[in-house]
Design a binder for these strands. Sequence first.
DNA 1: TTGAAAGCGCTAACAT
DNA 2: ATGTTAGCGCTTTCAA
Lengths: 332, 332
Amino acid sequence: MDEARPTIYDVARRCGVAASTVSRTFSHPSRVNPATREKVRAAADEVGYVPRPLARAEAPGRTRTLTLVVTDIANPYYAPLIKAAQAQALASDYTLALTDSDESPRVEVSNLRQLLATTSGAILATSRLSDDVIRQLAQHRPLAIVNREIDGVPSLVVDTAGGMRKAVRHLAAIGHRRIAYLSGPRNSWINGARWQAVRQESAALGLDAAFLGPYAPNRQGGHEAADALMLQRATAAVAYNDLIAIGTLQRLQSAGVRVPDDFSLIGCDDIFGADLTVPALTTIAGPTERLGRSAVDALHAQIAHRTAGDSAVFDAHLVTRGSTAPPPAASR
Amino acid sequence: MDEARPTIYDVARRCGVAASTVSRTFSHPSRVNPATREKVRAAADEVGYVPRPLARAEAPGRTRTLTLVVTDIANPYYAPLIKAAQAQALASDYTLALTDSDESPRVEVSNLRQLLATTSGAILATSRLSDDVIRQLAQHRPLAIVNREIDGVPSLVVDTAGGMRKAVRHLAAIGHRRIAYLSGPRNSWINGARWQAVRQESAALGLDAAFLGPYAPNRQGGHEAADALMLQRATAAVAYNDLIAIGTLQRLQSAGVRVPDDFSLIGCDDIFGADLTVPALTTIAGPTERLGRSAVDALHAQIAHRTAGDSAVFDAHLVTRGSTAPPPAASR
DNA sequence: TTGAAAGCGCTAACAT
DNA sequence: ATGTTAGCGCTTTCAA
């Protein structure tokens, strides 16, 4: 007595049309005559047919879905990137599925595998995975990486290292001699690149550059950084990102350190909120939206033309707001 | 260069067995010779083959992926909700796929359909869809909604309407007589609920309550709201959300209106950044994380026990910070 | 134990 | 606008 679940064929037979018409009625209703459409729907109801979305994914059309993996959705930095990627995907009638790796490589790779099973490709933003793992994934599935450079994998990066150099030059120009870099996660490729830039430019300019951290890339991490900072002789700091800088700013201020009079602070990324603090944060900004758009383009290139997508490096610039000033006279 | 995702056929070719043997190796390992089994597994690793849960799973829940649809990822309000949902999903070894509907019902329904095809259920946050559409979707797939109440669909909401009442009482208590509500999107269920609460509580307390808007639920919308506000006689405003409140605050200040001395402002949601403005924003807060967790629980309940998940209403409270004070003497 | 071949329910070219 | 046909990746007969 076990009748199988009704299929589009049952519906088709019932109302004398082809199975494909039934299929269309449910997936592209606009492409079928309204009259037929109603007839099909009625027949479907009678027979008790329910569309089986899962089977759809097995069909050749693929899923028209792309995956974007970020390390922390709560980091406002990603918002414009996500929006841009989303818009770009939508323009080609693709859906973007987003997932958060919670700063954990284990979670990242597991989410990625899970979603890659049902999507047509993935963008990894600020990935914590090793080069090898990423290369391996890229071998089998369309992949693009953001804020990371790996040979053979389309990479979209903002040259924040160059931005860091500009920041250091700015600090040097207004008289600072001893600065600190507030490090983000140690296993972050881009964190390494930023610190190298600070170190080299400081050396070239004859500044003392101290490495502090690593700190969690959020406000809490900034609180800790501030505590460490107050034990240092530095008169300025460049932070891995704005979240750390904002946390540092707040802790410094609540400890009675005046910014920028007593201490100068520079963030990175120009996130939402960087212009909300008092003083507003001087920070390093780049075209985050282009990152998202280009990453989606790289994916589409791989899906459609089966060619590797293009890599690109975008310029970063310094947004000078209120958190930087010459050091206190006593320290010059 | 980039071959498509490896299939059992690739594995089969690689180690010289039939595809069916590869299939058996992964679905009924006991029915294949241990030696062959190992050979196949090794080949699968080399080729990078990963079994496709989709192609086999008939039962919902087999893809171990959940969908979360938000209206705007750039809205910091969602961050804690997303993080909590993600964590809760992860705890049951599920992956969360997130998508942004860009405030557009069209995009929302299309993304939803797309992802529902390959995931086991979906959470709609602050959905812009009609009750009917949502009910219809809920009929076929596990669904939970956040910040919205619909009969028969598990609903998780923070009682921000109650929060609005508290906000109005607070304003009344410190002497305001004429207030304004800065409306969010007109087709938002929760916006209606908030305005009703403001209207009713104002009436009960003998205050004048003006409805302004609708405004886009972002800072830009707040700028427009500020312009409208300056034409009104109100001495205080309650905004649909913090983003509008922050935008209003900034525009007001740049027009020379002092907050809270000249004008009081209350936001809603207590997002990241609400404590960054000067003055810090008085706002309505609720347990956003519990929303995310409970929504995932509701989905799991539907997937596992095939029962409808539970609905819940969480309390909201007023976080009194610096943006509210008694009205200027002249207006009392 | 293994291989060949026939589906599973659905979609998308390509005709008509 | 609709029908025909050829798959999608995998599982499952059925022989060998």
